[in-house]
Every structure is written in C-alpha cells, then in structure tokens.
Amino acid sequence: MIQPTSSVASWWRQLTDRARLLLAGKAALAAAIAWVSAPYVPFADEQYSYYAPLGVLVTMYPTVAASAKSGVQAILGLALGIALGVSGVTLVLWGVPAVIAMALIIGVGVALGGVRALGAGREWVAVAALFVMLLSGRDVDGYSLSYLITMAWGVLVGVVVNLVIVPPLYLKRADAQLSVLRDALRGALVEVADEIEQRSVDAAVLVASAEPLSGLLREVDSEVRSAQESSRANPRARRHRGEQRSNDRRLRSLERMAFHAQNLIDVLARLAESGVVFTDADTRRYCAASVRSCADLIASFDGTEAAEEQRQTAEQMLTEYLDALGREEGGHITYRSDRWTAGLSLRRIIDASMPFSGAEQT
C-alpha cells in the first residue's frame, strides 16, 4: 500500500524538478510570444491567434530534437485533419446529414491516428477535422488556412525558444543514474558474497539481491537514451562529446555486468535449493572472495589506475576459485558444472570492466 506521505513527497520532487520548471518557464514564455505575434503572421486571420499558444504546447518537449520532431508530426496530423474536416463540410453541402458527415470524418480520423509514423500528430487528425466542421462556419477556407498557419507559427516559436534558452542537456543526470546502477550492482554482489560465506546458503536471499537490478536497468537505459536525444540538434552538446561517449560505454559495460551477475545469482540459487552449494570449505571461501573482488571492481569502475589494479586482483581471485574447483573430487556432475558456470559468469563480469581499465585504455 502506498503511503500518503511518500506519494506527496514524490509528487513534490517531480513538481520541483529543475528541468521541469525550466521547461514550464520556456513554455509560458513561448506561448506569450506566439500569442502576441500571431496577428502579424501572413495569411492568418487575427481572430484565430489563440491557436498559436496551442502550437507551442504541442511542441514543447524536454529536448530540442523531440520538440522539432513532435512539431512537424503535429502539423502533418493537423493538415490531414483539416483536409478531412473540409471533406466533411463538402459532404454536408452535398446534402449528407451533418451528424452522418461528422461521424464519418471522426471515424476516418481515428483510423488515421493509428499510423505510427504520424507520432505526436496522430491525436490531432480527428480533433482538427472536428474543429473544421464545427467552428469554420461559412468561411471554411479562411478558417482552415488560419488554423494551420497559426498552429505552425506556434510550433516554430516553441522550437526556437527551446533551442535558444538553455537547451536541455541531460548528460550529468544520466551519469548520476549510471552511478546508482553501479552501486546497486556492487551491493548485490556484496550480498551474494556474504551469503556464500554462510554455512547454509539461502536461495531466497540470493534471488532477492538481484530483484532491484532489472527495474533499475530499464530506468538507467531510459535516462541514457534521453541524454542522447538531448544532445541532438543541441549546440551545448559540442563541448560534451566525451561525456556522451563515456556514458554510452558505461551503460554497455554495466548492462553486461548486470546480465552476468544475474546469471551468477541464478546458478548459485539453484545450487542452494539443491542443498549442496559447495562440498569443500576452501572452494566456498575462494568463490566468496572472487565475488567480493568483482564487487570491488565494479566500485572502482572509473578507468583509473586503481580500477586496473582491482581488475588484476579480481583476475587472481577468480584463478584461485577455478583452481579450487579443479581440485574438487566427486559430487553430482550437475552441481559441479553449475559451480564452473558460476566461474564463467565471474569471468564475464571481469571482461565487461575492461573498457574502463588499463587493459583497453588507448
């Protein structure tokens, strides 16, 4: 059950988010500029100036690229809708009952809204058609042209304001989220190492340690994609190319690490459910040490000399674990293969760190 206090706190954080407040300020400014300037737009009737702020709203997205894209899509959707609306008016002039003509254009408009290529313009097809039928009166051509041009002017103003006034760049936010993922992954492996060191390994504890990772991976992936999008058509991004490349590399490496960490946890949980994790105390100890060294490697995941030293330590701990496995005798073949599979997962975690260690630095 969601606690009211936590919901209020979450809402407050979202409402006071600096990026959102900046977007709100820019939207307000752009709407005001569009409304005041709309009467001077050629071929547009002054009485329809209120459509200009609406054009701003349909295009005011957090990133410049998204603003431009959504604006173009909205204009395409409007153009289709206006054409539909004119067709509806024509049907009425031909003697078709108005209610039937309206139903037809709404049905076609909603159907056209299923065209994914229209993007943000999908929702405007039926709306624009309905506006033309209901609000154009006797001046269908004048209303339609003013509607389209005034909305397009609002879109243009919105894109320009978003571009000129502190165009958003979310690279630092993505970097912070990547650090959150790194710390969560390290924490999960530390929990696994702690559990392995116990005489009785609880499979539920192992599984629980990996549960937050999947959701966090999706959130971080979305944040990095937003940062990439914010860099497109953004003049501020030119000075931050290195940060963008670093974020991309970190995400790819952490995704691979998380994947193999989850495989490691799955294998160890399966062994724990069987009641036989390790038959030898030394093997158990070396496995825990190897997992812990991988956790420390993730913690030093920054490409420094310390990271390379930690990678070498993780390599050594893994070698000792594999050597201990080679000395094991007897035991069920399935359980022995699972313990080797755990070693392979640890190997892959170490490999995924190489782009940020001296092993692949250029």
Rank of each mutant, 00 (worst) to 15 (best):
P235E: 07
R285A: 12
M133S: 08
L264W: 02
L178V: 04
S274D: 14
T59Y: 03
V276I: 03
I196E: 01
R270I: 09
T334P: 03
W35V: 03
L268M: 13
A306L: 08
D266A: 13
R18K: 12
T279C: 06
S337V: 13
L213P: 06
L57D: 09
A359T: 10
A174K: 05
G77Y: 11
G187R: 12
Q228M: 11
F131M: 12
L148I: 10
S87M: 12
A152Q: 01
I105D: 09
E315P: 00
V160S: 02
I33F: 08
R245Y: 00
A126Y: 15
T150C: 10
M133L: 14
S253R: 05
V190G: 06
V161K: 10
A32K: 00
Q3T: 02
N162C: 08
N234P: 04
L130G: 03
S230E: 01
R292Q: 13
R270L: 12
S37N: 05
F259W: 07
A272C: 07
E243D: 14
L145I: 15
S253F: 03
D338G: 11
Y321I: 01
W153K: 07
V36N: 03
V125Q: 08
A203M: 00
L54S: 11
S179D: 14
V155E: 07
V155N: 06
V159I: 15
V192Q: 01
Q310G: 00
L213M: 13
V201F: 08
S10F: 07
S87H: 05
S179I: 00
W35Q: 12
A359I: 03
A289M: 06
L76I: 15
R138F: 02
R20E: 11
L91K: 05
D248M: 03
A261T: 14
A269K: 04
A233H: 12
L23P: 02
D248W: 00
V72M: 10
G113I: 07
A281D: 15
D17A: 12
V58Q: 13
V205Q: 09
R348D: 11
I298E: 06
Q14T: 10
A83V: 07
A98F: 04
R327M: 10
L148H: 02
V92Q: 14
S253C: 11
R250Y: 04
A101L: 10
D338P: 01
A31I: 06
A9R: 14
L148G: 14
G55K: 09
S231I: 04
Q47M: 11
S231W: 03
G55F: 10
S222L: 13
V86A: 11
